[in-house]
Design a protein around this nucleic acid. Structure first.
Lengths: 75, 75
DNA sequence: TCTTGACTTGTCAAATATGGCAAGTATGGA
DNA sequence: TCCATACTTGCCATATTTGACAAGTCAAGA
């Protein structure tokens, strides 16, 4: 599976879960202890950036789902 | 969960799965299309580096397990 | 139309992941 | 002991993520 495809799916997962929880990007960053910018959330959701596992881990904690759910590529 | 703890668990997952498959780090990088250095594998397994999702994705493909398995933090 | 909220995108500086190489450690076998 | 294999670690250069801010887009509603 290609890099761009992986990033796209990860991004879709983040966005889907965030919307399921009824959160805006701003709500989401507000729930994260260490600062994350909405800029970065947007770029991750759009698959424009190859996020580190720590960033995705912080997002998963704010969304209250396991990291593995965000990392589900549907394999 | 703290950054260092996340990286440590991810590293343990990679190492455990690699050993279960009976592969050395060199075997592993040999199965990855785009180049990855054993240096990097070692650093990830030791939790010394905050790998990107693309790097972990390539590793998961070489190990023939879902990315989500490597990203299982046991939450 | 105008405004507001939500999101996207460009640019920047700083930090750091990655690939690469070399040297060091550790273990097991000849 | 010597050697080979496996792995770790230090260092370097390059690329890119991240956080930050500003500006732009877009849709819904007054």
């Amino acid at each position: 599976m290609e890099k761009s495809e992986v990033l796209k799916i990860i991004g879709q997962n983040v966005k889907r879960i965030r919307l399921e929880k009824g959160l805006t990007q701003l709500d989401l960053v507000g729930k994260i202890k260490t600062r994350i910018d909405t800029t970065n959330i947007s770029r991750i959701e759009k698959g424009r950036t190859n996020a580190t596992i720590h960033t995705l881990s912080r997002i998963s904690q704010a969304l209250e789902v396991p990291l593995s759910e965000i990392c589900n590529l549907g394999e």
